[in-house]
């Protein structure tokens, strides 16, 4: 790794001005579980890392039934799944927070980091999309909030401008009849990158699906929001057939590549299997919520 500066701002403003100064030669450090490996591997030739873990807003973790959940961008996974209220209200996010890496990684890795790393295989992003999460971003020109599905623009690339920082992720409070699920397929039982993954949510009302969202990982240049798959379920009963039809749409939407983690054919097939399985679990969870 080349030589770098390490800076530890304590306010968002300070971080923003540092980002303005270093431009693309700096990145914000949260858990470091991706960034440090990438710097070592030469993907980034940085002049500075800006440690976000000493900024209050990046460390917040608040939840209420009224206002929903706010996850500071640097909050590590274990804090999220360690909170029982959050765990029960946001099952899909919980699934991904407990899946990312092993216990050691979960002690450091953050969902904000997972989002900013923008890997196609990111486990947190489909779950966040399923939960209708929004990214809160601050830059020199002020604050903006962007739906998570609009953040990633390519492998390792985001729609954030140079000089902008992700401060937190807001997730609306789930209402009655909501259920979500993230599952991924890996060849081992831990410590792998998803060959494919599916994050889904359903909102049930009077036995019918009022809203549904489906997002996939590892099968496109970015985590993929498959809007039509979720929409296909709206107004319908959560029957095997309807779920199968949505799963088929997810499979059609996937545009994976063949690499060491899987072939195009296998990955597309997994999209169908995982979406179907995830939807079934999400429906079960939604019913438990009733």
């Amino acid at each position: 790794m080349n030589s770098i500066d390490y800076i530890r701002p304590t306010t968002v403003d300070e971080a923003v001005s540092l980002l303005a100064k270093y431009k693309e030669k700096a990145r914000v450090l949260a858990g470091g579980t991706d960034l440090i490996v990438q710097m070592r591997g030469g993907r980034y030739q940085l002049d500075a890392v800006i440690d976000g873990k000493h900024i209050e807003e990046l460390n917040q973790l608040t939840y209420s039934k009224e206002n929903g959940l706010v996850i500071g961008a640097a909050v590590p996974c274990h804090k999220i799944y360690g909170d029982e209220n959050i765990a029960s209200a946001y099952p899909g996010i919980m699934d991904s927070a407990t899946l990312i890496g092993g216990i050691q990684i979960q002690g450091r890795a953050s969902l904000g980091g997972n989002l900013m790393n923008a890997a196609p295989s990111a486990d947190a992003i489909p779950a966040l999309i399923a939960h209708n999460a929004v990214a809160n971003i601050v830059g020199a020109n002020g604050t903006r909030s962007v739906p998570v599905e609009d953040i990633c623009s390519g492998p390792g690339r985001t729609t954030l401008d140079t000089g902008e920082i992700l401060v937190s992720i807001s997730v609306p409070a789930p209402s009655k009849g909501f259920g979500a699920r993230y599952i991924r397929f890996i060849p081992r039982n831990e410590m792998d990158i998803a060959v494919a993954g599916a994050g889904v949510s359903v909102q049930l009302k009077n036995g019918k699906i009022e809203a549904a969202r489906v997002a996939l990982s590892s099968v496109a240049p970015t985590p993929l929001f498959v809007e039509n798959a979720g929409n296909s379920l709206v107004g319908k009963e959560p029957s095997d057939e309807n779920i199968q039809a949505a799963a088929n749409l997810a499979k059609e939407a996937a545009t994976p590549i063949t690499d060491m983690r899987g072939t195009v054919e296998f990955r597309k097939h997994l999209c169908e299997v995982l979406t179907r399985r995830a939807l079934h679990t999400a429906v079960e969870r939604a019913r438990e919520e009733n």
Binding site: G32, T33, I36, V37, V49, D51, Q104, G107
Partner: peptide
């Protein structure tokens, strides 16, 4: 040196972490 073997595991502030994925200055 990339957080996949755990041979460098240390306890930091009550949580186990891979010390290869922590900067010394942290």
């Amino acid at each position: 040196n990339d957080g996949n073997c755990g041979a460098c595991t240390v306890n930091m502030d009550g949580r186990i972490v891979d010390s290869c994925l922590v900067l010394g200055v942290e």
